[in-house]
Simulated assay, not measured.
Amino acid sequence: MSMNDKKILFTFGCPNRGLTVTRLCHAAALAVDPTAKKNFFRLAVMLIEEATDDGYRNFFYNMRLEVERVPHHKYVPDSQPVPVDMSIRDYHKRMKDHLSERRDRYRRMMK
């Protein structure tokens, strides 16, 4: 099973194989991207044909442990200070200016 399949199962899966297959079919029906739709259906068919309920449950828990162990971002220790680009006051001022500019632009469009 590829890492993409494991990520799909991590997102849409649960220990109950029947519910996972149903959820994958619904996700495939809602998917816009043809590749994603194909991957969802392929994975649902694979789970229907090849897995048993007990075997799937064991596989699912082991797969979750494996995917959670893989780092998805760069690790930053808690003791390292977080760089801040601007102060809170400057951020609030920038957001206030941005919102007033959007409000003014909207009013000009409505005239």
Rank of each mutant, 00 (worst) to 15 (best):
F41I: 15
K111Q: 15
D53H: 06
T35E: 15
V82W: 08
K38H: 14
M110T: 05
D97C: 08
L47I: 04
Y91D: 09
M3T: 11
G13R: 02
F10I: 03
N62R: 12
L43I: 06
A36W: 08
D53Q: 09
R105G: 11
P77C: 10
G55C: 06
K38R: 15
Y56L: 05
Y61D: 09
Y75R: 07
M3F: 13
S79Q: 03
A36E: 15
V84N: 09
G18Y: 04
K38E: 15
R89M: 10
M63G: 03
D90A: 08
R57A: 11
D5I: 02
F10T: 04
M1R: 09
M1I: 13
H26R: 15
D33T: 00
S79V: 02
F60R: 01
A44R: 03
A36L: 14
V21T: 06
A51R: 07
V45Q: 06
D90Q: 11
F41T: 14
D97Q: 14
E50S: 12
I88G: 00
T20S: 03
M110C: 06
D53M: 03
V67H: 01
A27S: 12
G18P: 00
D85V: 05
R89I: 10
G13F: 05
D33E: 08
A51E: 15
F59Y: 15
T22M: 06
V67S: 03
L65A: 07
M109C: 11
T22C: 05
H98P: 01
A29D: 15
V67C: 04
A28R: 01
N4Y: 14
E101G: 09
T11C: 04
A31N: 08
D104P: 01
M63W: 11
N62C: 07
A44L: 04
T20P: 02
G13S: 02
H98R: 14
F60E: 02
L65M: 02
E66M: 01
R103K: 14
S100V: 07
P77V: 06
A36Q: 14
R89H: 12
D78M: 09
K96T: 13
A28W: 05
H26T: 13
V70M: 14
A28P: 01
R17W: 01
L99A: 12
T20G: 03
D5Q: 13
L9A: 04
D53E: 13
F60A: 01
M3I: 12
P77N: 10
V32K: 11
E66A: 03
M95Y: 06
R17Y: 00
L47Q: 00
